[in-house]
Design a protein around this nucleic acid. Structure first.
Lengths: 131, 131
DNA sequence: GTTTTATATATGCAATTGCATTCAGTTCGA
DNA sequence: TCGAACTGAATGCAATTGCATATATAAAAC
């Protein structure tokens, strides 16, 4: 808990210092960009990012407001929406990544050897999966 | 990040389900209880819990309101306060712990063997210290 | 078919957090 | 010894989050 809080705070700090939006924005953009056609349903983003539903709904409001994504109703199911990345959204993700990657390297990569990192990743993964 | 979020959410969930206050309350109470005379300066709690200053200030408001701690001005430095645990605070910490301990066991202990946990703890510690 | 139940998303409102600033008191330097 | 600089804590206000509920639609049950 302590480690995560410290490192997350440090990374968010770096993003803010670079005038970038918070990490959650990156997470959403990334999930969208890595799909075939740059779009997902909100509930899919929800699952992938672990954001709470109402929380994501409002994050999408802000991102739409900022021109990074666009929402469209989908014909086959009137309840749902598509969330599409815009070009601006893709550009923002790329810019975010340069800062984010540097932050990861600084606050994580530079601190432990790859072997330790791999062991950590493995152990943490087990924790989630339950052995 | 994912592991931490999932496990923390699960634990907070257990606390809430038991009608208990959030984990941060426990952290503060614990830091107080483990001292010799059950009192600390706000900035000391801050360091130990990683809570932000203004944030802690308000958390203490709530905890004082709930009768778990008490604030006193300290004579030797007019700027500072003492934060003291009350008997109620100690009782609450003990009750919190029964739920918290069970949650830890359920969401952590039951999921990995001790050896893995030890390796994890070591690796995470290194991350903070920088090797 | 019409009522129930379930799913997907949004929203009103209260609680919490973040940020900048304020306030009070201490220390330091000329 | 007086004002600048600093430290510890609190606070006003905006942004975010949590919680419950609303809205809209679809699927299932009768």
């Amino acid at each position: 808990m302590r480690t995560q809080r410290l490192i997350l705070a440090a990374i968010e700090q770096d993003l803010k210092a670079a005038g970038m939006p918070p990490l959650a924005w990156y997470d959403v953009l990334w999930e969208l960009v890595r799909t075939e056609d740059g779009r997902l349903r909100p509930f899919e983003i929800e699952e992938r990012t672990l954001l709470a539903q109402h929380n994501l709904s409002r994050l999408l409001d802000r991102m739409e407001e900022a021109g990074l994504v666009r929402r469209e109703i989908l014909p086959e199911d009137g309840r749902g929406r598509w969330v599409l990345v815009t070009g601006e959204g893709r550009a923002m993700r790329a810019r975010l990544w340069t800062v984010y990657a540097a932050a990861i390297e600084r606050h994580l990569g530079a601190k432990v050897e790859d072997a330790v990192a791999a062991t950590l990743a493995d152990g943490l993964e087990r924790l989630v999966r339950g052995t």
